[in-house]
Lab assay of single mutants.
Amino acid sequence: MGFKLLSKLLVYLTASIMAIASPLAFSVDSSGEYPTVSEIPVGEVRLYQIADGVWSHIATQSFDGAVYPSNGLIVRDGDELLLIDTAWGAKNTAALLAEIEKQIGLPVTRAVSTHFHDDRVGGVDVLRAAGVATYASPSTRRLAEVEGNEIPTHSLEGLSSSGDAVRFGPVELFYPGAAHSTDNLIVYVPSASVLYGGCAIYELSRTSAGNVADADLAEWPTSIERIQQHYPEAQFVIPGHGLPGGLDLLKHTTNVVKAHTNRSVVE
């Protein structure tokens, strides 16, 4: 069995187990497998329904001669939608809004960016022009300005110390501490036991640490421990890039980060 097929099978099995364990909360999309990078042309966006009122959005972007996937989250909030992270750029984010209108038909009224990198804030200006209120932590807003990236308009308070959590509509926002970046936030959907790890969490097929220019490698494993301790009931975990899975993604990420750190020390 090929690795790609095995990865998709694991996603399907995880979703099936969740649907059985929580039949009222989960209505997993039966329309197909989780979209992969090879299936999404740059400039297009796919939506994948995880649970009743919960979707991931998947886009792709060219970077350094390669094409990478990027995940975000959409959560229903009454007759409105909360968006977590842009679709990595203005063109993708405009396509995301169009796809949401086509498939869901509810307005996106608020959006949260989970850290300051372009795959999370690139497209904020498109959201703002569409009347979406954009939010991020003060740290993310400051770092985005320093980096020359787009800056969300509103500040999220109460997320300055490791372990801080605040309720934001249908989700809980959690600051686990520094990891992929010093400002990275985690998003949890309690009604569906869905954990969105953003770039602080890796997919299972990833074996290298990737972009760690703004990471705190020493603190990252401790931050992941905080996530595990705060959300032990999480059933569906979405990484910032690639295929979702279960809580095993947290341990896998820790292993990859520690291996990278150990290699760096040896070198």
Score class of each variant (00 low, 15 high):
Glu99Lys: 13
Gly242Lys: 04
Thr93Leu: 00
Ser160Ala: 14
His180Lys: 02
Ser16His: 15
Asp77Met: 05
Pro41Phe: 07
Glu80Gln: 13
Ala111Lys: 02
Ile58Val: 15
Trp55His: 03
Ala19Leu: 15
Ala95Ser: 12
Val28Leu: 09
Gly148Thr: 04
Thr60Arg: 08
Met18His: 13
Ala259Glu: 11
Val75Arg: 02
Leu47Val: 14
Ala259Ser: 13
Arg263Cys: 07
Gly131Tyr: 05
Asp214Thr: 06
Ser191Asp: 12
Ala178Glu: 07
Ile224Ala: 01
Ser27His: 11
Ala51Thr: 12
Thr182Met: 13
Gly72Ser: 03
Ile74Trp: 02
Gly123Met: 03
Asp248Ile: 07
Thr253Ala: 05
Thr86Ala: 05
Asp64Gly: 15
Tyr12Val: 10
Ala179Val: 07
Glu267Tyr: 10
Ala130Asn: 14
Ala87Thr: 04
Phe168Asp: 00
His241Thr: 00
Gln235Asn: 10
Ala66Ile: 15
Met18Trp: 08
Gly105Ile: 02
Arg206Phe: 08
Gln235Glu: 12
Thr140Ile: 05
Phe26Thr: 11
Gly72Cys: 02
Glu219Ser: 12
Ser56Asp: 09
Pro138Gln: 09
Glu225Asn: 10
Pro138Asp: 09
Ile50Gly: 02
Asp118Gly: 08
Ala179Gly: 10
Asp216Tyr: 05
Val237Ser: 01
Tyr202His: 11
Arg142Cys: 06
Phe236Met: 10
Asp77Glu: 10
Val146Phe: 14
Asn149Ala: 13
Phe168Lys: 02
Gly177Ala: 03
Glu157Phe: 11
Asp125Leu: 06
Ile224Phe: 05
Gly78Cys: 06
Val54Pro: 02
Ser264Cys: 05
His252Arg: 03
Ile186Ser: 03
Ser160Asn: 13
Asn71Ser: 06
Val54Tyr: 01
Arg46Trp: 09
Asn184Leu: 01
Ile104Ala: 00
Asp64Trp: 09
Leu73Ser: 01
Trp55Ser: 01
Thr134Tyr: 00
Lys102Ala: 13
Glu145Asp: 11
Thr207Ile: 11
Gly32Ser: 10
Leu73Gly: 05
Asp125Lys: 08
Arg167Pro: 11
Tyr135His: 08
Glu225Gly: 11
Met1His: 02
Val265Asp: 12
Asn71Cys: 02
Ile50Lys: 03
Ile84Trp: 00
Arg167Gln: 13
Gly53Pro: 06
Gly197Asn: 04
Ser191Lys: 12
Ile74Ser: 04
Glu33Ala: 10
Ser137Ile: 04
Trp220Ser: 01
Gly245Arg: 02
Trp220Val: 00
Leu96Ala: 03
Glu145His: 13
Ala165Val: 13
Ser191Cys: 05
Ala209Phe: 08
Glu203Met: 03
Ala218Ile: 12
Phe168Trp: 09
Val189Lys: 00
Glu145Ser: 13
Val237Pro: 01
Ile40Pro: 09
Phe236Glu: 07
Arg128His: 12
Pro35Leu: 08
Gly78Lys: 08
Glu172Ser: 04
Gly2Lys: 11
Val256Arg: 03
Leu97Ala: 01
Phe116Gly: 04
Ala215Ile: 04
Leu96Trp: 00
Gly122Leu: 05
Ser264Arg: 13
Pro170Tyr: 03
Lys251Asp: 14
Ile151Pro: 04
Arg120Ile: 01
Ser264Trp: 09
Gly177Glu: 01
Thr140His: 04
Ala98Arg: 14
Gly2Arg: 11
Phe26Met: 15
Leu97Pro: 04
Val121Gln: 02
Val189Leu: 05
Val237Asn: 00
Ser264Tyr: 09
Pro41Arg: 12
Ser113Gln: 04
Ala66Val: 15
Asp183Cys: 00
Gly246Cys: 04
Ser70Thr: 06
Gly242Asp: 06
Ala200Lys: 03
Val121Lys: 01
Ala19Trp: 15
Leu217Tyr: 04
Arg226Trp: 07
His230Tyr: 09
